[in-house]
Write a protein that binds this DNA or RNA. Structure first.
Lengths: 204, 204, 204, 204
DNA sequence: CATGAATGAGTGTTCATTCAT
DNA sequence: GATGAATGAACACTCATTCAT
């Protein structure tokens, strides 16, 4: 359609997009989603509103682009890590993953927090929705490949475990950051996963 | 006898508050938080804006009251249930609790969804924040009282388990409701908790 | 629906509506439709934009209300006059009507001109559309009642004659006002109608 | 020979103008005057805004050129036809002219409708203004040359008749197209003109 | 000559809140 | 107490136009 926004062609344009997203991030952190306005973003970016609208069709596109970028970054790390677990023991793999997830949440933590707690999660703006789906898929594949676990439905198990890990870490970072810092929570999550997946002892 | 005089007024006030919250709920479900306005709520409630402002100091007070009410309702059920688990086996207790949580999420699911996904979770409006804290506390106490589980830090364990359960159910309801309907997910969550808490076999 | 605007209840409100329409008329005449904006109207009316939006859902509603009012006024005069022609001779009736139409166009001529020439005639904003339809209907009925005219299809004839009269007068007022002032054009229109309607002389 | 050099450039310029006007026409029909913007026209034309501004100094110049072209086209046909009526009987001439006008209105009817109903008719953008003036002039001359009509002021008579015909056809096309298709209205208009112009029977 | 990025005043519209009645 | 008219800052978004490349 005619209402799609220009895609940057010139170098200058790409820089403008960058500066707009940076301004969006700052405002999101400082003032929150409710006080994020296109005019404010443009002003902070040192650019006119009109320019903003050349690249983003509306306010939420700005947030979406930012969320997408942050999410992609986090997902990429986790997924890469997940794909390298096949030659690790279950315990090592899981502990490594959980540390990785915690680490990834500590990059730009304020932005991540703002995105997670301010932005409405309806439709396209849900940063977790898409990311977690991808992580679940990869985790599911990783589970399927392992022979050192008891038989479980890989899809359901990864849904439950992945969402549990992310949610607990997320909540802890918001409400009880000391639990994360002391690494107690990471250990508990690891145990939870390991115990869930470990084969039952004894048996024929 | 003389306060009988005032009762009808208080009655009327309560009715007004009721009708305002009901209107808020409807609009939240139909139009979302972003399009919820005090004028709209008042109109829908068949009351003037001025009256609204006599009972709620601002827009968010309305939402907060609603969220509080819904949260309280859900928490009450879970907490009551938790307090009755002391004479049940671990497995029965946990399966019962998870069923209860799922059931509680199915009451006014649209309102719950709207509150969870539209309303910003900053500060006072975070319905889960407070609720989950209370549930964790009660769960923690319940864990402490049990002798049929392996030794775990009750506070940390309840934090991890409670948040895991709520988050997984929440996400599933949004993204994969069929998993809930088939009860597969409930079973997995139950297993996860039971395995985490069950004493290790063998040993002295 | 919920988005209908308030209908004035208090006296104050009616006065506000009045002052808004008056401001709209002034701006339409002075600056034209293109430069008519809700903020400008509100400022000119000495009222806040918000107040404007309490009574008019959007910019065009303002213009529509004005056009409706002007049109109604003009139509009423013509229609009343038309209904009183049954006991007049054809010639007297027609000359009277044409004078009436010319006179009606001279009330608030600037406003009428602005409405006619600036306002897009799409859909609801077409002031002539509805008005002329009503005039045609009444003219049609009047023709049907007359016995001193040759047989014509009353509906088609009134369509052609009414539109001819209005259009010619309209155009003349815009482009050649002197023709109207000298009354030459009125006479020609009258002749045109009379000759069209007069019975053919002689014949069996 | 040396200007052959420049021809390709002029050719290209003409092609650009062409493509711009075509885009303007399309957008006018599809989106209306209000949503016609120079950027949109340029995009639709596959040309940059800058290029547009090399050929048209502003937005309305675009519309004006288009209106001019359409008007000219229609006027040319009518005027040519008018100039060929001197050896036709009054009746044949008038019926032919009216058919011609109706036919001319059916070429690019959507564009004509958009121009007529969307574009403000102030000053330079009034497509009818200039066209009708020219048609009136030629019609006036044609009347003057005829000897088979009763004595009328040729200028006034053509003003009245030409505007009547155009207006009635215009309105009918908008509001009652079936009247045109059935040719009933053409016949009534013809009769109206013929009766107005025919010499009075009898008399010395 | 052509491009397209940039401009910024301006538009229509919403909404939390106040206050005279 | 209740009403509803009024407020006006703020918002998302558009568009004619300019100009460095």
């Amino acid at each position: 359609m005619e209402n799609k926004r220009r895609t940057p062609i010139q170098e200058r344009a790409r820089a403008t997009v960058e500066v707009l997203l940076e301004a969006t991030a700052q405002i999101l952190v400082e003032l929150g989603y409710a006080r994020l306005s296109t005019n404010r973003v443009a002003r902070r970016a040192g650019v006119s509103v009109g320019t903003l609208y050349q690249y983003f069709p509306n306010k939420d596109a700005l947030v979406e682009a930012l969320a997408h970028r942050v999410s992609e970054g986090q997902a990429e790390v986790i997924i890469t890590q997940l794909q390298q677990t096949h030659d690790q023991s279950l315990e090592v793999a899981i502990r490594g993953l959980i540390q990785g997830i915690i680490a990834s949440k500590r990059v730009e933590p304020e932005l991540a927090a703002a995105l997670a707690s301010e932005v409405p999660r309806n439709g396209r703006l849900d940063l977790e929705q898409a990311t977690l789906r991808r992580v679940c898929d990869v985790a599911s594949a990783a589970l399927r490949r392992r022979s050192d676990i008891r038989p479980v439905d890989p899809e359901l198990a990864s849904f439950a475990l992945v969402h549990s890990i992310f949610a607990v870490i997320q909540r802890a970072l918001q409400a009880r950051p000391e639990l994360i810092d002391d690494d107690d929570l990471g250990e508990i999550l690891a145990e939870m996963c390991i115990r869930y997946l470990s084969p039952d002892p004894g048996g024929s």
